[in-house]
Design a protein around this nucleic acid. Sequence first.
DNA 1: CATCCATGGATCATTATTTGATCCTATAGT
DNA 2: ACTATAGGATCAAATAATGATCCATGGATG
Lengths: 257, 257
Amino acid sequence: MSTVEKAISLLNFFTEDTPEWGLSELARQAQFDKATTRRLLVALANSGLIEQHTVTRRYQLGAGLLRLARVRESHFPLLQVAVPVLRDVATATDETVHLSEFGARGLVTVHVEESTKANRVSVANGQILPLHATASGIAFLAFSPSQLAKSYLRKSLTAFTRHTLVQPARLDDAIKAAAEHGYSRGEQGYEDGVFSIAAPILGLDGYAIGSIAVAMPLSRNTKATTERHIQAVRGAAQAISTRLFGEQPTPRQARVA
Amino acid sequence: MSTVEKAISLLNFFTEDTPEWGLSELARQAQFDKATTRRLLVALANSGLIEQHTVTRRYQLGAGLLRLARVRESHFPLLQVAVPVLRDVATATDETVHLSEFGARGLVTVHVEESTKANRVSVANGQILPLHATASGIAFLAFSPSQLAKSYLRKSLTAFTRHTLVQPARLDDAIKAAAEHGYSRGEQGYEDGVFSIAAPILGLDGYAIGSIAVAMPLSRNTKATTERHIQAVRGAAQAISTRLFGEQPTPRQARVA
DNA sequence: CATCCATGGATCATTATTTGATCCTATAGT
DNA sequence: ACTATAGGATCAAATAATGATCCATGGATG
């Protein structure tokens, strides 16, 4: 562990629960010598990453972090973070993978990686996904503020195919299952012959900001592929959140019914 | 400069304008040896403060910063940051200093440091300050979204004293002056015999989130004290912003008229 | 009130890490 | 094919980090 790494490792002891540390206290926790710890803290303080309360002599995270975090954030919009991850999922599954983001217009597809297979599902960029009829939508609803999910349950649910969930009770069940398992499945709810698995991308508050889905022709679906897609999609969604926010948000499931 | 400080100094080269650096490029800019720069970057990368794009090999700020910044933010609400600064101003001026924050209820006084003088201005905590009649309010308006300021100009302006600015044109002028100079003055606009100087506390977007004001009996007011209070209040407002956000926001003046 | 113990901070010979000249390889431009 | 520049690796020499030890201060505790 280099000196620099040691110094930075100290920063990670500062959390919401323990936002302040005394010198000895921190040295003990980090298992560094007290003198070493102090030198590291002083260096961090000179750089603005740490501040010392002049009265209590305790150490806290510094204001310098805020500027840096902002630069990072402005350089990393959802798309930029998500596209490489989507590509990985597309490569791993060789099925069409698409990302959607919830905004004013609803749940909009913002990026698609198409399968290389001849028989594949095509998804148009910019397409608005009905929340009740797609795996993406249900995954999103399952991790939305309860009010949003409930209000959707009361809406008139358009039937796009014979399989679209139009009975509130059925949709309710699907949302509950998605909330419980962390992913949703859609079987011909929007287009005939399409099977998909989706997982929510969580924002810092634990609510979904969008979703990521793998879509395949129903004919190709097997238990094994389903299982693989679930893993891939959930992993990808988590990876995106983590890269966007630096940590995995705690999920907040919608309480329907 | 310690190794740790060198490493962290590298972080500061990453800005909104230049959010990515190549190794050699950065080494040149920072005036470190290329090998040194690389080792530092690797250490930072291992700690999550830097990430390297696997394809382009360029370096960017890492996701680890986000968590840290959030801890810092949650630990530093306005009050906690501002109170020590207010206290300094109070000590320096020996006049009553008060801080107000704009929220749903309007501009509310959230902290007061009273002068030790017998003849002093008293301000109640929790008091709601009329925007058009107080130095704090005008300083706030001058750095608000233009729409807010304009809509206020159209409202019926209550007269609290004979000196309250009730003519839109006069208020308009006061706002313009405050926008130009970065501080406002209030002379008996709310209470007779009170003179105050206020400066806006800017949020990251450059708009005011509140203000800080020094209030004194008009009788004690001289050119010299006014000048000192202006300096003190402006400095304090800037210090608070800087401590809250890690940098001084660029002011955004309201365009009235 | 004296004592004790833990705290933050300073010192400095010893030790281990950082440093940077140099080399290697890959890639892009001429 | 040649050149320039990139990122990255190496290792003896230089330097900075280390930690045992000491000091001063400030609560506790008897």
